[in-house]
């Protein structure tokens, strides 16, 4: 009952951060449509190793859409043609027999290429380090039920907190802006009474770090929201702007 397809892959190969990159073309036959996209790349790599060639380097880990490690620009879309999924959850049934599939790394000033399809996303860690937390240390905190939180606020905070830090929003943005990523964390923490205390300072510090790291400005194109595998809403950017404005007034 298994359906298989033959495909042609155009894959970005780049030996190192400063090396000149190029597309290489590969042909793959009898790929099961039940395979995931990354399993298809596993098959390609197995083939390359058997031919004595270097396999394609790509980031991946959990393969269930939660770790945020996988990336890939597939046929011009971050995480490929399916909606609300990461590349690891994309399956080959979304492609046609005989199709040519173009695979590129995230392309953005904030995410320099390390090798082939792997990019450096440590900028996201630096933005979180600048203020993406509530400043409490281990121990000495109140009972978990001491402060009731309206369910709506907790649910909305959870939706914002679903961000997996993959960077698709930055890759999708023509300005290379990280506003959706930053706003998701600012929103999550600003919506909760525990995080409210530092909300203004947090917004200011995270935005300053984002600017410093070379991410572009937000011009409200909405491409980030469309491509986000976790459906993080643009409304978070509006909330970030409010918090940022408040921080400015307080200064």
């Amino acid at each position: 009952m298994e359906t298989t397809i033959n495909i042609k892959l155009k894959v970005w190969r780049q030996a190192g951060p400063k090396a000149k990159g190029r597309f290489e073309t590969y042909e793959l036959n009898n790929i099961s449509t039940d395979s995931s996209f990354l399993e298809m790349l596993d098959i390609l790599n197995e083939q390359l190793i058997n031919e004595g060639k270097e396999p394609v380097a790509f980031d991946h880990d959990c393969r269930e859409g939660i770790c945020g490690m996988c990336s890939l620009y597939i046929n011009g879309r971050p995480h490929g043609p399916d909606d609300d999924v990461t590349t690891c959850q994309l399956h080959m049934r979304k492609f046609k027999d005989g199709e040519t599939i173009t695979v590129e790394p995230w392309r953005s000033a904030g995410f320099p290429i390390i090798k082939d399809l792997i990019v450096d996303r440590t900028a996201f860690d630096k933005i979180i380090a600048a203020g993406g937390y509530i400043s409490v240390s281990t121990g000495g905190v109140p009972d978990a039920n001491a402060i009731p939180i309206p369910k709506e606020d907790a649910d909305e905070a959870m939706d914002a907190a679903s961000c997996i830090g993959c960077g698709a929003c930055v890759a999708a943005c023509k300005n290379g802006s990280a506003m959706l990523f930053v706003s998701a964390k600012v929103s999550q923490l600003a919506l909760l009474p525990q995080g409210r205390v530092e909300a203004a300072r947090r917004a200011k510090n995270m935005v300053a770090k984002m600017d410093e790291l070379g991410f572009g400005n937000c011009t409200n194109t909405g491409a980030c929201e469309v491509e986000c595998p976790k459906g993080i809403s643009l409304a978070n950017i509006a909330r970030l702007n409010r918090e940022f404005l408040k921080a400015g007034i307080q200064d």
Partner: peptide
């Protein structure tokens, strides 16, 4: 500890 950190547990 987790609630104090802002972990959005179900409510």
């Amino acid at each position: 500890q987790c609630v104090a950190q802002g972990v959005p547990f179900a409510r």
